[in-house]
Design a protein around this nucleic acid. Structure first.
Length: 271
DNA sequence: CCTAGACCCTGTACGC
DNA sequence: TGCGTACAGGGTCTAG
């Protein structure tokens, strides 16, 4: 579900409430998420949250004196704030409650691909270590992308989705970005010119920023902490548009597969 | 190193 | 209406 823009939207909403709050206690109703939740999570009782950040599609909660919580929402994870009087009204797949003084942050995840892990330190963290640059960082520029793309024989679309190359891009935005930059998804990475890398970097920043400003994309499971949905799906040009007319020409959106994931494209606009 | 495939889950949409 | 199948925004791990 959530790619960089969705996680960023969630982050901004969590930040508003969580920073400076103390976790009264944690209630776990299901421990078998993507990685089992260990007993260490109970160390978070009475801990003060001093910061929350995002890296790629991960959320990182920094505690005052007791390490970090690394969170990933998988395909279908979502948070919502509820009032204390609602604590006994559960939805299906409500797995975890973070209980605060006057509110509860509830985690729901039908497919259970999300995870919560506690780390004393994030140095050499196995998840964060291998990530490439953030799309909005200075390190992410066309020189980086061009250099990185040399001698790679695979197709561009699945390459854009590799977090070790660029952090945070998933299936929806990989498709949208390639349409925006008019690059055919099945082109080989090594065939990219410097000019095209420049265009790609520009398109990545543009599409992701627009999506964040729209509150993310809701196809099915993405729900904001206030229960509302994102509306970038109204701006999607190719994702989920198979058979629909291209927004720029008169041909129709087609699909192909890369590593079992659907790729959407316009064969006339994208070369 | 690289790539393809299996796997972790539930919900839904669709064809018969 | 029911059943079987394919597919869905994630990533990790393995075998070759």
């Amino acid at each position: 579900m959530p790619e960089l823009p969705e996680v960023e939207v969630i982050l901004q909403e969590l930040k508003l409430f969580l920073i400076g709050q103390k976790i009264s206690y944690i209630e776990i109703r299901c421990t078998n998420l993507r990685w089992p939740i260990s007993q260490e999570i109970y160390k978070l009782k009475n801990q003060l949250i001093i910061n929350i950040t995002r890296r790629s599609k991960y959320l990182v909660i920094k505690l005052f004196k007791n390490g970090y919580i690394l969170i990933h929402l998988g395909m279908s994870g979502n948070f919502r704030f509820i009032e204390k009087k609602e604590i006994l009204f559960f939805n299906k797949h409500d797995h975890i409650d973070f209980v605060f003084n006057n509110k509860i942050l509830r985690y729901n995840d039908p497919r259970r691909f999300g995870f919560f892990l506690w780390f004393n330190s994030l140095k050499n963290n196995k998840f964060l270590n291998k990530l490439g640059p953030e799309p909005f960082s200075k390190a992410f520029n066309y020189q980086y992308l061009f250099k990185k793309s040399r001698f790679i024989k695979k197709s561009i679309k699945p390459w854009l989705m590799e977090n070790k190359v660029i952090a945070g891009i998933g299936n929806i935005y990989a498709n949208e970005i390639l349409f925006e930059s008019k690059i055919f998804p099945d082109r080989k990475v090594m065939s990219l010119t410097e000019q095209e890398c420049l265009l790609l970097v520009y398109s990545i920043k543009k599409i992701l920023l627009q999506a964040i400003k729209s509150g993310g994309t809701t196809i099915r499971n993405f729900i904001r902490t206030n229960g509302k949905i994102g509306f970038f799906n109204t701006k999607l040009k190719v994702y989920n548009k198979k058979g629909k007319q291209c927004s720029y020409c008169f041909s129709y959106i087609k699909t192909m597969k890369h590593n079992k994931r659907t790729t959407f494209f316009c064969s006339f606009c994208q070369k």
